[in-house]
Design a protein around this nucleic acid. Sequence first.
DNA 1: TTTGTTATTGACCGCTTGGTCAATATAGGT
DNA 2: ACCTATATTGACCAAGCGGTCAATAACAAA
Lengths: 213, 213
Amino acid sequence: MVRRRAPEKERREQILWAAFEVAARDGLAGLTVRAVAAEAQLSHALVLFHFGRKEHLLQELLGWLLATTSVFDVSEDVVGFPHALDRLYALLQQEMARLTHEPRHVRLFFEYWALGARHEPIRVRISAELERYRAAFRENMEELLLAEPATFAGITADGLAAVAVSLIQGCAMQAMNDPEHFDTDGYLVAARGIIGQLAAPVTPMNARNSSHS
Amino acid sequence: MVRRRAPEKERREQILWAAFEVAARDGLAGLTVRAVAAEAQLSHALVLFHFGRKEHLLQELLGWLLATTSVFDVSEDVVGFPHALDRLYALLQQEMARLTHEPRHVRLFFEYWALGARHEPIRVRISAELERYRAAFRENMEELLLAEPATFAGITADGLAAVAVSLIQGCAMQAMNDPEHFDTDGYLVAARGIIGQLAAPVTPMNARNSSHS
DNA sequence: TTTGTTATTGACCGCTTGGTCAATATAGGT
DNA sequence: ACCTATATTGACCAAGCGGTCAATAACAAA
């Protein structure tokens, strides 16, 4: 009926946003060309005109998701802390906060992860993103390892970074589908406590054996 | 063509197994009534005859998955160790091994988790399973907390159990889609190292400050 | 105004899906 | 052998899917 022409770039962004809305609401299973078109109030033929195939839309939505998600703005808030341990705390807390502020992005990421099992190009991109995620922690972990080489004999920075990523992913999985029953604060405290044991500077005050012997 | 009558229970199990094969191969998106029927070499009408609706098949497959998956046979191998920490090690290692021995079960569980976001009855069952999973660790964690209450001030057994579950889930997510690039052993060593810092019996040999001062 | 390019649409196609149903073959009790 | 139960099937249906295409409206350039 009412037709308004729009430049290609603008339309594509509009359609991608609509695709995200649909995927966030109905899951990737509900991401149909027609549903996206309805969300954007366009004809479904126009969506295919701009993206060629649904497959392209699916892949570009993943690109949009990875680009849009505010991953690891490590810069300002985190860098301030002098100690590596404090930066790790801040990093973890920041990521936990992101899980609760952008749950739809995180959830969609998990869905793409599952899709990646049977879809190689998507699997590759998801793996790369996870690797990028670990890399953001690795630097920090190397500092921790250097501080106390004897304690961490045999442990690699990669291993520790992977563990850090697990802490975030695992919290997301347990909390997202059951937010009122899962104690996110208790989780954060426990995670922080564990990390604290990792590399707390050894002084008489917090030395472990002060409570024994 | 060749028709053989089978008692209801037998047929249902046959169909459920076929459903698992299909879901493991093609994902829940590929779990169609017809695909299951083809896998079981039956007509698709027969599948609907025994399960009524696809919805029922989907739910019963989840039940089958949770029942079949060899979760937490804590009994024999683990109970043997006298120290809580060793039992925790064994538990973690056992679960890690399960991830690699039953990857299809684990992957399907993740897919049900994602589906649970828009499907309440499934979400409820998944949440319950995760809770059950945490409970298996909680008992162990309480022992650790009792051993050194000062070190873990403010930390709850629930929080620690959730962290333990995260270690397993996170490892699965990072490793499953990228097994040759992810260092599972390094992960396990790191996780074990972290836990070791948690509550290792304090002796001159492994006391942390032995490398300092 | 005319012309040419392109964004947009509705109609259409072939295919797959979940689900129903009458017809039929099978087994067990008598 | 007959009869009743039910397990099993192929045919059918409406709905929704991705994708194609000719027709058309909007816009910029001439």
